[in-house]
Amino acid sequence: MTQRAELATVLDRLTVDELITEYAGAVDDGDWTAYRRLFTAEGRADYRSAGGIEGDAAQVAGWLAESLALFDMRQHLIVNRRVRFGLLDHDTGDTARVRADYLNPMRFTSDGGPAAPDLVCGGRYDFGLLRTREGWRLSEVVVHEKWRRLPERSPADLRD
Rank of each mutant, 00 (worst) to 15 (best):
D28Q: 07
A45L: 07
A41V: 09
V143G: 01
L77K: 04
D94L: 11
R148F: 04
A5D: 13
E18H: 13
T2R: 09
E18W: 05
G55Q: 02
A115E: 03
Y47L: 03
E42K: 14
P155M: 02
A58V: 10
V83D: 02
L7M: 13
D160G: 15
Y102H: 09
A58D: 13
R13Q: 13
G55R: 01
G55N: 03
A41F: 03
R159N: 07
D118F: 05
D101N: 14
L130F: 11
A8V: 04
A100H: 04
D31G: 04
L14N: 12
A26P: 07
R82Q: 15
Q75A: 13
S49L: 09
E140L: 15
E22K: 14
V16T: 04
V143D: 09
G62L: 00
A45Y: 00
L38N: 02
L129Q: 02
L129H: 02
T95E: 10
L38D: 02
F39Y: 15
T33Q: 14
T109H: 12
L7K: 09
D89C: 08
D12G: 08
T40H: 06
G30W: 00
R131A: 11
V143A: 08
D56E: 11
A41C: 06
R36K: 13
T40C: 02
R13A: 09
D29W: 05
L68I: 06
Y47F: 13
M106V: 03
V27Y: 00
W147A: 12
P155V: 01
D56L: 07
R4L: 12
W32C: 04
A5E: 14
T95I: 07
T132M: 08
L158E: 09
D72E: 11
L11V: 10
L70C: 07
G93Q: 11
L158S: 07
G43E: 03
R13W: 09
D31I: 03
V83R: 00
T15G: 07
R36A: 14
A45G: 06
L87S: 15
R148W: 04
A115G: 11
R48V: 09
P105Y: 04
R4Q: 12
T2D: 09
G113Q: 12
A57P: 01
V98N: 03
I53K: 02
H144M: 07
R82L: 15
A41Y: 04
Y47R: 07
R131S: 05
D101V: 06
Y23Q: 03
L103F: 12
D160M: 15
A34R: 11
Y102Q: 05
N104Q: 13
A156L: 08
P155L: 08
A41E: 15
G43T: 04
N104G: 08
G51V: 09
A8Q: 10
F108M: 08
T21F: 10
T9H: 08
R107W: 00
L68S: 04
L11C: 06
E134S: 15
L14Y: 08
L14A: 12
T109W: 03
S154W: 10
A50C: 05
T9W: 06
P117F: 01
R37W: 01
I78D: 02
V83K: 02
L150D: 11
L158N: 02
L70F: 05
R82M: 13
A57I: 02
E54H: 12
T40P: 01
E145P: 10
V16K: 00
E42G: 14
L138I: 14
R153K: 14
T15P: 03
P117M: 03
R153D: 09
M73L: 11
G113P: 02
R82K: 14
L103P: 03
V60C: 07
L87P: 04
